[in-house]
Simulated scan of single mutants.
Amino acid sequence: MWYNFLRKARSIRFAEVFISQYSVVSCRIKELCYNRGYSLTQLAEMVGISKTQLSDYIALRNIPNVEMAYSLARCLDCPVEALYNWRPLPGNNTEG
């Protein structure tokens, strides 16, 4: 599945390819924070960003770059793809 490929990828080029094949349905960062017992302010401090920037990620006004996504996932102890709910875009062969 695409997760194995995403796990190895850390380049902007890959992020562009991935984003061109999948779209974000919703953000799970707030839910993951709650499950871990963190406030959004605590998570923002842990990854070194402002709470406003984190709020932008949650509200889908912005999507974190690959490095930031890995930092968020590491702090939340989850796979990077778990930060968002994803949907394959129509017409893309996402099976490989």
Rank of each mutant, 00 (worst) to 15 (best):
F14K: 12
V17W: 09
T52P: 02
Y22N: 09
N4S: 12
G96W: 05
L83S: 07
D56A: 14
R10P: 01
S71G: 05
L32Y: 05
R13F: 10
C78G: 05
W86P: 15
F18Q: 11
E67A: 00
L43I: 00
R87Y: 04
V17M: 06
Q42N: 08
N4Q: 04
A69K: 08
T41Q: 12
M68H: 08
S50W: 04
M1C: 12
Y57R: 00
A59L: 10
E31S: 04
N93W: 03
L72C: 06
I19R: 13
I12L: 09
N85T: 05
D56I: 02
C27M: 04
S20E: 05
R10G: 15
W2H: 15
A15H: 08
D56E: 12
V17R: 13
T94R: 08
R28L: 08
Y57K: 02
S26Q: 09
N92P: 01
V25C: 01
A73M: 01
Y22P: 15
Q21A: 09
N65I: 00
I12G: 05
L89W: 05
R28W: 07
P64N: 12
Y22C: 11
S26R: 15
V17S: 09
L40Q: 15
P90M: 06
I63Q: 07
F18L: 05
P90D: 12
I63C: 03
L54Y: 13
S23R: 14
W86A: 07
Y38W: 10
V47Q: 10
R10K: 08
L89R: 15
N35E: 14
M68W: 05
A9F: 10
